[in-house]
Protein backbone atom coordinates (compact mmCIF):
# COMPACT_ATOMS: atom_id res chain seq x y z
CA UNK A 1 0.00 0.00 0.00
CA UNK A 2 2.75 2.40 1.02
CA UNK A 3 4.60 1.47 -2.14
CA UNK A 4 1.60 2.31 -4.29
CA UNK A 5 1.11 5.63 -2.53
CA UNK A 6 4.81 6.42 -2.78
CA UNK A 7 4.90 5.67 -6.48
CA UNK A 8 1.71 7.63 -7.08
CA UNK A 9 3.18 10.65 -5.35
CA UNK A 10 6.36 10.36 -7.41
CA UNK A 11 4.24 10.07 -10.52
CA UNK A 12 2.13 13.07 -9.63
CA UNK A 13 5.20 15.16 -8.96
CA UNK A 14 6.80 14.11 -12.29
CA UNK A 15 3.48 15.06 -13.84
CA UNK A 16 3.49 18.45 -12.13
CA UNK A 17 6.91 19.30 -13.58
CA UNK A 18 5.83 18.10 -17.02
CA UNK A 19 2.66 20.15 -16.70
CA UNK A 20 4.52 23.32 -15.79
CA UNK A 21 6.73 22.91 -18.85
CA UNK A 22 3.97 21.79 -21.19
CA UNK A 23 1.66 24.69 -20.25
CA UNK A 24 3.73 27.24 -22.10
CA UNK A 25 4.23 24.84 -24.99
CA UNK A 26 0.56 24.08 -25.44
CA UNK A 27 -0.12 27.79 -25.55
CA UNK A 28 2.41 28.61 -28.27
CA UNK A 29 2.02 25.34 -30.14
CA UNK A 30 -1.74 25.59 -30.01
CA UNK A 31 -2.00 29.15 -31.11
CA UNK A 32 0.71 29.41 -33.69
CA UNK A 33 1.50 25.85 -34.61
CA UNK A 34 5.04 26.74 -33.67
CA UNK A 35 7.28 24.03 -32.32
CA UNK A 36 9.63 25.98 -30.15
CA UNK A 37 12.62 23.79 -29.39
CA UNK A 38 14.20 26.69 -27.51
CA UNK A 39 11.46 26.35 -24.90
CA UNK A 40 13.81 24.13 -22.91
CA UNK A 41 16.38 26.91 -22.84
CA UNK A 42 13.81 29.31 -21.41
CA UNK A 43 13.45 26.81 -18.58
CA UNK A 44 17.19 26.88 -18.20
CA UNK A 45 17.14 30.70 -18.19
CA UNK A 46 14.59 30.65 -15.38
CA UNK A 47 16.69 28.20 -13.40
CA UNK A 48 19.84 30.29 -13.79
CA UNK A 49 17.87 33.40 -12.81
CA UNK A 50 17.24 31.77 -9.44
CA UNK A 51 20.92 30.95 -9.16
CA UNK A 52 22.01 34.49 -9.98
CA UNK A 53 19.49 36.12 -7.64
CA UNK A 54 20.43 33.88 -4.74
CA UNK A 55 24.00 35.16 -4.54
CA UNK A 56 23.33 38.83 -3.70
CA UNK A 57 20.11 38.24 -1.75
CA UNK A 58 21.33 35.40 0.41
CA UNK A 59 18.03 34.40 1.96
CA UNK A 60 16.81 31.38 0.01
CA UNK A 61 13.11 31.97 0.64
CA UNK A 62 13.09 35.62 -0.43
CA UNK A 63 15.21 34.94 -3.48
CA UNK A 64 12.94 32.09 -4.57
CA UNK A 65 9.84 34.25 -4.32
CA UNK A 66 11.60 37.07 -6.11
CA UNK A 67 12.95 34.69 -8.75
CA UNK A 68 9.48 33.66 -9.88
CA UNK A 69 8.41 37.02 -11.35
CA UNK A 70 11.93 37.88 -12.49
CA UNK A 71 12.31 34.55 -14.29
CA UNK A 72 8.90 35.10 -15.87
CA UNK A 73 10.09 38.45 -17.22
CA UNK A 74 13.52 37.18 -18.31
CA UNK A 75 12.27 34.09 -20.11
CA UNK A 76 9.23 35.93 -21.44
CA UNK A 77 11.36 38.68 -22.94
CA UNK A 78 13.65 36.10 -24.51
CA UNK A 79 10.61 34.42 -26.00
CA UNK A 80 9.13 37.65 -27.30
CA UNK A 81 12.47 38.59 -28.81
CA UNK A 82 12.75 35.20 -30.50
CA UNK A 83 9.22 35.56 -31.85
CA UNK A 84 9.96 39.03 -33.18
CA UNK A 85 13.33 38.18 -34.67
CA UNK A 86 12.70 34.78 -36.21
CA UNK A 87 9.46 32.99 -35.63
CA UNK A 88 7.06 35.53 -37.10
CA UNK A 89 8.97 35.28 -40.37
CA UNK A 90 8.37 31.55 -40.50
CA UNK A 91 4.66 31.24 -39.82
CA UNK A 92 3.97 29.47 -43.08
CA UNK A 93 6.67 26.90 -42.36
CA UNK A 94 6.03 25.28 -38.96
CA UNK A 95 8.49 22.44 -39.55
CA UNK A 96 11.28 24.82 -40.39
CA UNK A 97 10.54 26.74 -37.21
CA UNK A 98 11.36 23.58 -35.31
CA UNK A 99 14.83 23.42 -36.84
CA UNK A 100 15.49 27.14 -36.52
CA UNK A 101 14.54 27.20 -32.86
CA UNK A 102 16.71 24.12 -32.33
CA UNK A 103 19.59 26.17 -33.66
CA UNK A 104 18.72 28.95 -31.23
CA UNK A 105 18.58 26.42 -28.43
CA UNK A 106 22.07 25.16 -29.29
CA UNK A 107 23.43 28.69 -29.14
CA UNK A 108 21.68 29.51 -25.86
CA UNK A 109 23.04 26.32 -24.29
CA UNK A 110 26.53 27.23 -25.32
CA UNK A 111 26.01 30.75 -24.04
CA UNK A 112 25.02 29.33 -20.65
CA UNK A 113 28.10 27.11 -20.74
CA UNK A 114 30.30 30.12 -21.45
CA UNK A 115 28.73 32.28 -18.74
CA UNK A 116 28.13 29.81 -15.92
CA UNK A 117 30.52 26.99 -16.85
CA UNK A 118 29.73 23.50 -18.05
CA UNK A 119 29.29 21.79 -14.65
CA UNK A 120 25.88 21.87 -13.00
CA UNK A 121 25.28 24.38 -10.23
CA UNK A 122 23.18 23.93 -7.13
CA UNK A 123 20.95 26.48 -5.48
CA UNK A 124 20.00 26.31 -1.83
CA UNK A 125 16.38 25.55 -1.22
CA UNK A 126 14.63 27.51 1.54
CA UNK A 127 14.44 25.64 4.83
CA UNK A 128 10.71 25.22 4.57
CA UNK A 129 11.08 23.31 1.33
CA UNK A 130 13.86 20.89 2.28
CA UNK A 131 11.99 18.59 4.63
CA UNK A 132 9.09 16.30 4.12
CA UNK A 133 5.72 15.72 5.68
CA UNK A 134 4.38 12.29 6.47
CA UNK A 135 0.86 11.50 5.36
CA UNK A 136 -0.52 7.98 5.89
CA UNK A 137 2.97 6.57 6.22
CA UNK A 138 4.19 8.20 3.02
CA UNK A 139 6.92 10.79 3.08
CA UNK A 140 5.99 13.70 0.84
CA UNK A 141 8.88 16.00 0.05
CA UNK A 142 7.72 19.56 0.63
CA UNK A 143 9.59 20.76 -2.44
CA UNK A 144 7.56 18.37 -4.59
CA UNK A 145 4.36 19.47 -2.89
CA UNK A 146 5.31 23.08 -3.58
CA UNK A 147 5.85 22.30 -7.27
CA UNK A 148 2.52 20.49 -7.45
CA UNK A 149 0.73 23.41 -5.85
CA UNK A 150 2.54 25.90 -8.03
CA UNK A 151 1.70 23.97 -11.19
CA UNK A 152 -1.97 23.86 -10.27
CA UNK A 153 -1.86 27.59 -9.47
CA UNK A 154 -0.37 28.29 -12.89
CA UNK A 155 -3.07 26.23 -14.60
CA UNK A 156 -5.77 28.06 -12.70
CA UNK A 157 -4.22 31.43 -13.47
CA UNK A 158 -3.80 30.67 -17.14
CA UNK A 159 -7.32 29.30 -17.39
CA UNK A 160 -8.65 32.45 -15.74
CA UNK A 161 -6.73 34.66 -18.15
CA UNK A 162 -7.92 32.69 -21.15
CA UNK A 163 -11.52 32.59 -20.00
CA UNK A 164 -12.20 36.00 -18.53
CA UNK A 165 -9.84 38.66 -19.83
CA UNK A 166 -10.05 40.46 -23.17
CA UNK A 167 -6.56 39.17 -23.94
CA UNK A 168 -7.71 35.61 -23.30
CA UNK A 169 -10.66 36.11 -25.60
CA UNK A 170 -8.37 37.35 -28.33
CA UNK A 171 -6.01 34.42 -27.85
CA UNK A 172 -8.87 31.95 -28.07
CA UNK A 173 -10.17 33.66 -31.16
CA UNK A 174 -6.80 33.37 -32.88
CA UNK A 175 -6.49 29.71 -31.90
CA UNK A 176 -9.91 28.89 -33.30
CA UNK A 177 -9.65 30.78 -36.55
CA UNK A 178 -6.73 33.02 -37.28
CA UNK A 179 -8.08 34.48 -40.51
CA UNK A 180 -11.49 35.25 -39.09
CA UNK A 181 -9.91 36.82 -36.02
CA UNK A 182 -7.78 39.02 -38.21
CA UNK A 183 -10.68 40.30 -40.30
CA UNK A 184 -12.58 40.94 -37.07
CA UNK A 185 -9.99 43.53 -36.17
CA UNK A 186 -7.73 41.57 -33.86
CA UNK A 187 -4.08 42.45 -34.28
CA UNK A 188 -3.03 38.81 -34.54
CA UNK A 189 0.65 39.70 -34.67
CA UNK A 190 0.46 41.47 -31.33
CA UNK A 191 -1.59 38.65 -29.81
CA UNK A 192 1.02 36.18 -31.02
CA UNK A 193 3.80 38.09 -29.34
CA UNK A 194 1.90 38.36 -26.08
CA UNK A 195 1.12 34.65 -26.18
CA UNK A 196 4.74 33.88 -26.78
CA UNK A 197 5.72 36.13 -23.92
CA UNK A 198 3.35 34.36 -21.53
CA UNK A 199 4.24 30.88 -22.77
CA UNK A 200 7.98 31.49 -22.47
CA UNK A 201 7.51 33.19 -19.11
CA UNK A 202 5.76 30.08 -17.83
CA UNK A 203 8.81 28.09 -18.93
CA UNK A 204 10.98 30.45 -16.92
CA UNK A 205 8.90 29.85 -13.80
CA UNK A 206 9.09 26.12 -14.43
CA UNK A 207 12.86 26.57 -14.39
CA UNK A 208 12.68 28.21 -10.97
CA UNK A 209 10.67 25.25 -9.71
CA UNK A 210 13.23 22.82 -11.13
CA UNK A 211 16.00 24.29 -8.98
CA UNK A 212 14.17 22.79 -6.00
CA UNK A 213 14.56 19.20 -7.15
CA UNK A 214 18.12 19.05 -8.36
CA UNK A 215 21.20 20.78 -9.68
CA UNK A 216 20.81 22.82 -12.84
CA UNK A 217 23.04 23.00 -15.87
CA UNK A 218 23.15 24.07 -19.50
CA UNK A 219 21.21 20.97 -20.58
CA UNK A 220 18.54 21.20 -17.88
CA UNK A 221 15.86 22.22 -20.34
CA UNK A 222 16.72 19.71 -23.04
CA UNK A 223 16.22 16.83 -20.64
CA UNK A 224 12.56 17.70 -20.27
CA UNK A 225 11.66 19.11 -23.65
CA UNK A 226 10.90 15.90 -25.55
CA UNK A 227 8.64 14.60 -22.78
CA UNK A 228 6.89 17.96 -22.62
CA UNK A 229 6.27 17.89 -26.37
CA UNK A 230 4.81 14.41 -26.05
CA UNK A 231 2.42 15.79 -23.44
CA UNK A 232 1.27 18.41 -25.93
CA UNK A 233 0.94 15.87 -28.74
CA UNK A 234 -1.12 13.48 -26.63
CA UNK A 235 -3.13 16.16 -24.86
CA UNK A 236 -4.14 17.86 -28.06
CA UNK A 237 -3.26 21.39 -28.94
CA UNK A 238 -4.80 24.55 -27.68
CA UNK A 239 -6.63 23.04 -24.73
CA UNK A 240 -5.36 23.23 -21.17
CA UNK A 241 -7.53 20.32 -20.06
CA UNK A 242 -5.71 17.90 -22.36
CA UNK A 243 -2.30 19.01 -21.11
CA UNK A 244 -3.31 18.67 -17.46
CA UNK A 245 -4.71 15.16 -17.82
CA UNK A 246 -1.90 13.95 -20.05
CA UNK A 247 0.89 15.32 -17.88
CA UNK A 248 -0.37 13.50 -14.81
CA UNK A 249 -1.17 10.29 -16.69
CA UNK A 250 2.26 10.20 -18.29
CA UNK A 251 3.91 11.03 -14.98
CA UNK A 252 2.07 8.21 -13.19
CA UNK A 253 2.72 5.78 -16.03
CA UNK A 254 6.40 6.65 -15.99
CA UNK A 255 6.76 6.22 -12.24
CA UNK A 256 4.82 2.93 -12.13
CA UNK A 257 6.78 1.51 -15.05
CA UNK A 258 10.09 2.67 -13.62
CA UNK A 259 9.25 0.92 -10.39
CA UNK A 260 8.27 -2.37 -12.01
CA UNK A 261 10.94 -2.36 -14.75
CA UNK A 262 13.80 0.04 -15.41
CA UNK A 263 14.02 3.68 -16.45
CA UNK A 264 15.04 2.80 -19.99
CA UNK A 265 12.31 0.23 -20.52
CA UNK A 266 9.78 2.67 -19.06
CA UNK A 267 10.70 5.28 -21.67
CA UNK A 268 10.27 2.82 -24.51
CA UNK A 269 6.94 1.51 -23.18
CA UNK A 270 5.59 5.04 -22.73
CA UNK A 271 6.53 5.90 -26.31
CA UNK A 272 4.90 2.75 -27.67
CA UNK A 273 1.82 3.60 -25.63
CA UNK A 274 1.72 7.09 -27.14
CA UNK A 275 1.94 5.78 -30.71
CA UNK A 276 -0.86 3.33 -29.90
CA UNK A 277 -2.92 6.12 -28.36
CA UNK A 278 -2.54 8.25 -31.49
CA UNK A 279 -4.07 5.39 -33.47
CA UNK A 280 -7.18 5.96 -31.48
CA UNK A 281 -7.06 9.75 -31.34
CA UNK A 282 -4.64 11.14 -33.90
CA UNK A 283 -5.44 14.72 -32.90
CA UNK A 284 -4.78 14.12 -29.24
CA UNK A 285 -7.12 13.92 -26.29
CA UNK A 286 -8.88 17.23 -26.73
CA UNK A 287 -8.84 19.36 -29.78
CA UNK A 288 -10.40 22.50 -31.12
CA UNK A 289 -12.97 21.27 -33.60
CA UNK A 290 -12.81 22.84 -37.00
CA UNK A 291 -14.25 22.08 -40.36
CA UNK A 292 -10.92 22.41 -42.09
CA UNK A 293 -9.30 19.40 -43.68
CA UNK A 294 -6.73 18.19 -41.27
Amino acid sequence: MTVILNQSFTGVSIGAVLLLIALGLTLTFGQMGVINMAHGEFIMAGAYTTYVLQKPIGDAGVSLLLALPVAFLVAGSMGALLEWLLIRRLYTRPLDTLLVTWGVSLMLQQLARDIFGAPNVQTTAPGLLTGSVSVAGVNLATSRLFILGFALLCVAGLAAILRTTPLGRRIRAVVQNRDLAEVSGIATGRVDRTTFFIGSGLAGMAGVALTLIGPIGPTTGTNYIVDAFLVVVVGGIGRLRGAVITAFVLGLLQSVLEYSTTVSVAKVVVLVGIVAFLQWRPQGLYTVRTRSLV
Binding site: I35, P94, K267, I274, P282
Partner: peptide
Protein backbone atom coordinates in the same frame (compact mmCIF):
# COMPACT_ATOMS: atom_id res chain seq x y z
CA UNK B 1 -4.00 7.91 -39.03
CA UNK B 2 -2.84 11.10 -40.76
CA UNK B 3 -0.54 12.06 -37.94
CA UNK B 4 1.72 14.47 -39.71
CA UNK B 5 3.77 17.61 -39.70
CA UNK B 6 5.10 18.52 -36.33
CA UNK B 7 3.49 15.53 -34.62
CA UNK B 8 5.42 13.17 -36.86
CA UNK B 9 8.65 15.06 -36.32
CA UNK B 10 8.26 14.89 -32.54
CA UNK B 11 7.36 11.20 -32.58
CA UNK B 12 10.36 10.32 -34.71
CA UNK B 13 12.54 12.35 -32.38
CA UNK B 14 11.11 10.65 -29.32
CA UNK B 15 11.90 7.31 -30.95
CA UNK B 16 15.56 8.33 -31.25
CA UNK B 17 15.61 9.37 -27.60
CA UNK B 18 13.97 6.12 -26.51
CA UNK B 19 16.40 3.90 -28.42
CA UNK B 20 19.43 5.76 -27.09
CA UNK B 21 18.14 5.57 -23.51
CA UNK B 22 17.31 1.89 -23.89
Amino acid sequence: RRVKGAYFAILSQALAAALAIW
